[in-house]
Design a protein around this nucleic acid. Sequence first.
DNA 1: TACCACACGTGAGTC
DNA 2: TGACTCACGTGTGGT
Lengths: 212, 212
Amino acid sequence: MVMLRQGMQHVRNYYNSEPQMMRSSFSQPFISRTYKTSFLKPKSKAEIKVLAAKKHSEAEKRRRMRINGQYETLRNILPNIIKKDKASVLAETIKQVKELKKKVSKLEQDSSTNPSKDVVKFPSGAEKLRLERCNIEEGLVKATLSCEDRPELMQLISKAVGSANTKLVKAEIVSVGGRTRSVLWVQGLGNDGMGMLKSHLRTALHKPRSFQ
Amino acid sequence: MVMLRQGMQHVRNYYNSEPQMMRSSFSQPFISRTYKTSFLKPKSKAEIKVLAAKKHSEAEKRRRMRINGQYETLRNILPNIIKKDKASVLAETIKQVKELKKKVSKLEQDSSTNPSKDVVKFPSGAEKLRLERCNIEEGLVKATLSCEDRPELMQLISKAVGSANTKLVKAEIVSVGGRTRSVLWVQGLGNDGMGMLKSHLRTALHKPRSFQ
DNA sequence: TACCACACGTGAGTC
DNA sequence: TGACTCACGTGTGGT
């Protein structure tokens, strides 16, 4: 039942552009023009009707071709189409559009909760510390800090996180031009946990450069 | 020239299901059944032809309805469609599919070069170190390492990266159950830089727990 | 054979 | 008025 109608359009064009039923009436104009000026373009009512019909059918043909062309591009765009008939093409299109939409919203959701969008964010010049809840159900808190780059910074940070009795789920660090921007994803904070973590991180940030 | 054809389908259904030209011939069967048994279902050639035509046109109508239903769902799925006619719907569909495809490939590209997809990757039990070029034009190298979690690890790593004369563009660390998985994006490696970086990182990984 | 998908010309509607 | 879009029934070829 699988149908492959690749070139059917061409096969089906068996009608010539001027159907026979119309041809007979086209000899008429020459007769009338023998005694009437061609500027007036005299036409019998039947003649007018036939010409209009011809025009109409030609316009309709153009319309069909326009639509069929778009079916063709759809057939080319969509991957894995077996049945090439119009209904199947439309069905497959609908399916694909839905899938693509779902995929996009999923990917966009990911990139909004993930650090991907922070890739372009470089450390700012100012000393900064910011905490925000980013997933309430999972109790996930995102801490963003920007400060001078120091070798012992990671130790200080991990100690700060540890002392707040939390779990560091994920950390992301960008260091550029002697400055560092860190984003931490922390889990397991109690009600007053955020304030505690913040103060711990603040002391870590402002600790003077160690001896080492 | 903007066309709003929301409910045109309903307006256009002015034909009843049995066109007039067919009705006259439907009175025929009753006459023949007066002297022939209805089991044989006697049909004149004309009768057969008309019935076949009816069947055909009905099938064609079903086909049209199937296709038009799909146009309708497309109209509903696609956002921001002004012109509701078939050709415009198809054109808009093609446009949207192309856009969605581009969007998806872009987002997928992002998530493959970005750490997003590593979110689910937790530190493995085995000691691991792997380097790979992930962007040849930019000379970007991705180093993935998995080892026991130690407080001084980040210092060791940053020293290793620094001694290889490179720039740490980005770092990502996940610590779970006493183990750490780190992913480093390093830039500015020479031809033999990768080997050097690897050996430096290896020694950092296997360094015994410091006094501190 | 019957069924299916299609292109066609046409009548009718909208703008 | 004319340009357009649509649904319709039909003829035809392919399965």
